[in-house]
Design a protein around this nucleic acid. Structure first.
Lengths: 353, 353
DNA sequence: GTGAAAGCGCTAACAC
DNA sequence: GTGTTAGCGCTTTCAC
């Protein structure tokens, strides 16, 4: 048996849906109509200040909380988002989710979440079912599953994409979306390495969200090409340290390879270990740079040079966009986020001579 | 300016709540009453097989999806959970969330999520507002904020706690909850270190969920006491590598300290760096063990010895408990999870002589 | 300014 | 087996 830890079933009784206090009770207690209460709740005009105060006090006293289901059913404003994502734990995803949740909570939106299995190819209806009641959605499309879900959604459904790169295909075209422009950042990291004297830079990529080259891959190629260096074959890996390790073993065995740019910090971590096992010294005779700048990266041995990416800000901006979409009246949330920034640490250095 | 990356506002139109296909349209198209459609949707008996098939076909054809809000409002069964948590990104939290989401999705439950600010002290009503419409909840109470929220919820509200240790106070008593019994695991790790010849073991703890000692702290003390060793003062840190680093600097400066047990892998990572900077050799003259066994831990330098904790299984079990709570008919989900296990790697070794 | 009416889409009783 | 009748709690109209 497993069942370590423990379970306490407790003595709770089944959902004893008591007579929830409704708008009517508040109305009666305050001596007004239920309609007035509704107006107060929704902060609508045409209510005398006194009346409003009275109702507010009554609400407080009765500990009344409006029923979300009823509000939604009656056609009230959209006050919920469902986040569709292929992952909830990986750094970029988790951070974007955190940004979305925070921004949503601030303005009283409910956030639902549903994860997309990596290999699921969902039709429009299936995606909508995933939204289960949500009346607006944000899909985090950092890889194929997300991109597909975004494309499957009907064009008039209120959704914004938090993407790896702006959609080019017609399917998702014209859909509101936010992305981090890390192409230039990838170039910068590559140029940095080149400037350190490395003859070339190898790139180990995370899975791509589309058929075309990712921003990072492109930025890497840009820099190489601009410098007149040959572009080494692109190596693809997954998202985990393990996958980075596996993919890098071959790479680090080649002493000609002196600089590796990894698609994210986890991959870079795997590269670091592969390098160690191969007897390579980082940064002595091999430089490694990652993407993300996760909280752990500064503490690794060697501390990882990485491109800091503001996923949390990205998520916040994504929600802002959605908010404006479903409620044009809403204050235009500051939809900006920090620029990618190359954080120089111990894992990158001059090319070996 | 910040606003790196980009925003595309797209051309989407506001929420154009078209005439959603309802149960009535399905009924008309199938030539039955709306009630029959309802019965079919909910898999209730008393519907002829033929009729059921016909309705199902019609639903398929019309691409009908039942309206969740209406179902909830009309008093249908609970089909949603709201997860209350103080964090969504840290390993334990993220993993538990993943387990919950997966289990919920499998049985068609919607999952909402709301994060608890660390310092928020919420009253019953405020917590309920956080649940915003959810009719059942799971609160991840690995620290104080979660524990407080759990205690604030009315005793008859359907909620299960995913906790660090079973509640002892009367407030949360009798509430269904799940936890990982890592007390024994902490003892084992401590004994392992003692067995390696270390005179004592120092413990760097994560924030505690209650006033009383955490399971891990207790397990550590148990082992020390049982071995007749003095219990060094408990050191408290936060959750991050940075906090582990800061807290460990003093510790590693003391050469008498040869073994450190860290409350989680992130803390251990910080300890590793502090040790490096202090010129300590791990595991040469200092052993470090963490808790969690996050995916990164095996790739660190040195690879981290850690207590593997099955948070995902814990989350799954938590959901199973909740499911049974709101729907006693539901198949008793296998509510077990893997036992904590000490994974020996490179960061622990014999005591220096 | 405020109230009364109607209905959102569904499920739970009841009838038949 | 199946259809009918009421609401669930709220936000629309639209009157006053």
């Amino acid at each position: 048996m497993t069942g370590s830890g423990n379970i306490s079933t407790g003595t709770s009784t089944p959902p004893d849906r008591g007579p929830a206090t409704s708008i009517w009770e508040v109305a009666r207690a305050a001596g007004v109509s239920h309609q007035t209460v509704s107006r107060v709740i929704n902060g609508k005009p045409h209510v005398k200040a006194e009346t409003r105060a009275l109702v507010l006090a009554t609400i407080e006293e009765l500990r009344f909380t409006p029923n979300r289901a009823a509000q939604a059913l009656a056609g009230g404003p959209v006050r919920s988002v469902t986040v569709l994502t292929a992952d909830t734990a990986a750094y970029g995803y988790a951070s974007a989710l955190r940004g979305i949740e925070e921004a949503a909570r601030t303005v009283g939106f409910t956030v639902g979440i549903s994860v997309l299995e990596p290999d699921a190819v969902l039709g429009a209806q299936e995606v909508i079912e995933r939204l289960s009641g949500g009346r607006a959605a944000i899909v985090i499309a950092f890889e194929a599953a997300g991109t597909r879900a975004l494309a499957a959604l009907p064009p008039d459904y209120p959704v914004v994409g938090v993407v790896e790169r702006p959609a080019a295909g017609h399917a998702s075209d014209g859909r509101p979306q936010v992305w981090i422009d890390d192409r230039e950042a990838a170039s910068r990291a590559t140029r940095h390495l080149l400037g350190l004297g490395h003859r070339s830079v190898h790139y180990l990529s995370i899975p791509s969200s589309t058929q075309v080259l990712s921003q990072r891959t492109q930025g890497w190629q840009d820099a190489l090409t601009a410098a007149g260096r040959p572009v080494p074959p692109l190596r693809s890996a997954g998202w985990t340290p393990r996958s980075g390790y596996l993919a890098a073993r071959e790479l680090v065995a080649d002493r000609e390879v002196t600089a590796i740019l990894a698609g994210n910090d986890d991959l870079a971590l795997g590269v670091l270990r592969a390098a160690r096992e191969a007897g390579r010294d980082v940064p002595g005779n091999l430089s490694v740079i990652g993407f993300d700048d996760a909280p752990q990266s500064a503490y690794l041995a060697p501390a990882l040079t990485s491109v800091r990416l503001d996923f949390e800000g990205l998520g916040r901006a994504g929600f802002g966009l959605l908010h404006n979409l479903v409620d044009p009246q809403s204050a235009p949330v500051p939809s900006t986020w920090a620029e990618p920034e190359l954080i120089l640490r111990e894992s990158s250095g001059p090319a070996p001579r």
